[in-house]
Design a protein around this nucleic acid. Sequence first.
DNA 1: GCTTGACTTAGAGCGCGCTCGAAGCTGAAG
DNA 2: CTTCAGCTTCGAGCGCGCTCTAAGTCAAGC
Lengths: 144, 144
Amino acid sequence: MTGSYVIAEVAARTGLTAHTLRYYERAGLIEPPAREWNGHRRYTEGDLGMITILTKLRATGMPIEGMRRYAALCRQGPGNEAERRALLIEHREQVLSRLDQLQADLAVVDLKIEMYAPATGSGADFGRMEDLCSGAQSSQPLVT
Amino acid sequence: MTGSYVIAEVAARTGLTAHTLRYYERAGLIEPPAREWNGHRRYTEGDLGMITILTKLRATGMPIEGMRRYAALCRQGPGNEAERRALLIEHREQVLSRLDQLQADLAVVDLKIEMYAPATGSGADFGRMEDLCSGAQSSQPLVT
DNA sequence: GCTTGACTTAGAGCGCGCTCGAAGCTGAAG
DNA sequence: CTTCAGCTTCGAGCGCGCTCTAAGTCAAGC
């Protein structure tokens, strides 16, 4: 029947390790799930869903603290959907600008790759590498 | 005369700190630059170019070790352009697949955002959050 | 002459996100 | 009864990429 998983099953389904799941729980990202009589965690389908969305937030670069805040809102129950939404939207904005930056930086790498291209008909001669990237950087924290 | 910078100038232009520049040097990413009589580093225009491309590699998620390998090839001098190119191309592949994954994960977040949308004409009723993300994950290391 | 500030070195410390180890309990299999 | 696998807790350790401290040198300005 749908809806009861021991930690190893959740690990298998979410791609996290059992260790990480416990860590997330300690960190306040996950509701402490119900326990069996012997103390073993029993995760519900809903837990699984929450964990999954958390992994997506993590995968898109949200720091643990942000996840914690989102999880706190969810735990508060209905009524704060606007806040949750705002949190996610702000995160999305950040991801999008990270994506933009990433593509810009990658473009420079691409240019460099072309400079290394074995002599093609296009006659790409070797410019000096420093001509590639002039001007001050964005002085951002170099987030990945 | 273009082409002589003390460390603070390089820091200003690259967005790195002087500390980080020295660290990169220690780590084998940067050629130890020439020194003035008093021991102060003097970076050339070429150094600046190299550092800049390194920051692009870093910004696109290349680990220090990869940068070190690229820098080593560059330091070896001409003749290994194919190798450098291959290294950069492999990196590009990785960045591109990271971008894909990032977009996929972001799409899930977007979906979630829509679920939180204030009641629109489209009548988005609240599905259960776990319906969003079913199935096993990619079990990837959750790279950012 | 003294202070200030930019540089030098070696090496320690930190923040993040896990990751792992040790010791202990339980239930089932041999 | 023994062994094994899988869970439990607590807390330490780790890898990465910086980031900072301390102590020293030198040059210029007041």
